[in-house]
Design a protein around this nucleic acid. Sequence first.
DNA 1: ATTCTGACA
DNA 2: TGTCAGAA
Length: 331
Amino acid sequence: MKIKEVADRLKITQRAIRFYEDKGLIAPSKQDDNQYRMFDDEDIWRLQTIIALRESGMSISDIRTALSDADAHGNGQLRYFLELQRSVMFSKWVEMKQIIETTDEMIDSLKRNQGLALDNIFALAEGSRRLREQRAWEDRWGFDRLAGIHDRLVQEDERKYGNYDEALSLIVKWVSPIPGERGLDIGTGTGNLAGRLIKEGADMAGVDQSNEMLKECQRKFPEMETKLGNFLALPYLDGKFDFVVSSFALHHLTHDQMRMAIPEMRRVLKPRGRICIADLMTDGEGSAAREEGENYIPFSNLIDLLESSGYVTKFQKMNERLHVVLAVPIR
DNA sequence: ATTCTGACA
DNA sequence: TGTCAGAA
């Protein structure tokens, strides 16, 4: 297919297509004689993906990164394109939902008082701005190169992953899935936790930011469903899961992001859904500790967030850093 | 009639 | 990215 037809069908200009080529996002073949670009099926899919990602606000350079990952996946590429788009659509959907809720709050507040204090308005505006930034794509693919060696790392890095197996076992014990129950593992990585729950009869889905991780996960647990996504934009509709679990992932979030993650988990849970999390946290009431580039959040903060969200919690400290928390909704 | 490259808005 | 020019 030549450029005009592609541009017409994809509703973009020829200039845009050449621009993307110039930026290294796509490389259609060229006819030897006249240098006309020729687009095959894959090029079209690729372009379509670029357009979708662009519309969702991703920068050219981030798109390049995401796409070059896709290139490494041979035949799974089309699937990757679609997952990528699904993932950004969900981000948009969640963001939209939040903004609507924010607006509702303003309307509500407007009904009560005579009006909103200017400060409130600015605060809310600031909130939705922050929301945008925090859901940014930055560094979303950094984990890919770790995928192959992840499991070995877990075994070797005693300091960080000490009591790893015990923590996973405790989650399984606390969640004690009823066969057939549907569970979600956030930041599933190569699926170690999800795999154990599957063994108990749960129907598991896993979300991770890294496609490489998911690929490895898929290899280990073919029956598991995996999707690209993260804590702040879970790629599922409301009320789909009986429980949500997560291990060694929450500490990648800032405190503000963690605050947003809880309602997001609750969103995909059924009304009585439970949450069980194992992660590295600090003991103190104080501020987050920074170690080796990770920011561990005070354990009590998570408990507070959960309890103020209507959960009753139970927890166990595995070692200096590692804690396991179970949260079930009140009544 | 189409497409390409390059320059400039 | 849009637009325009000059060439194939």
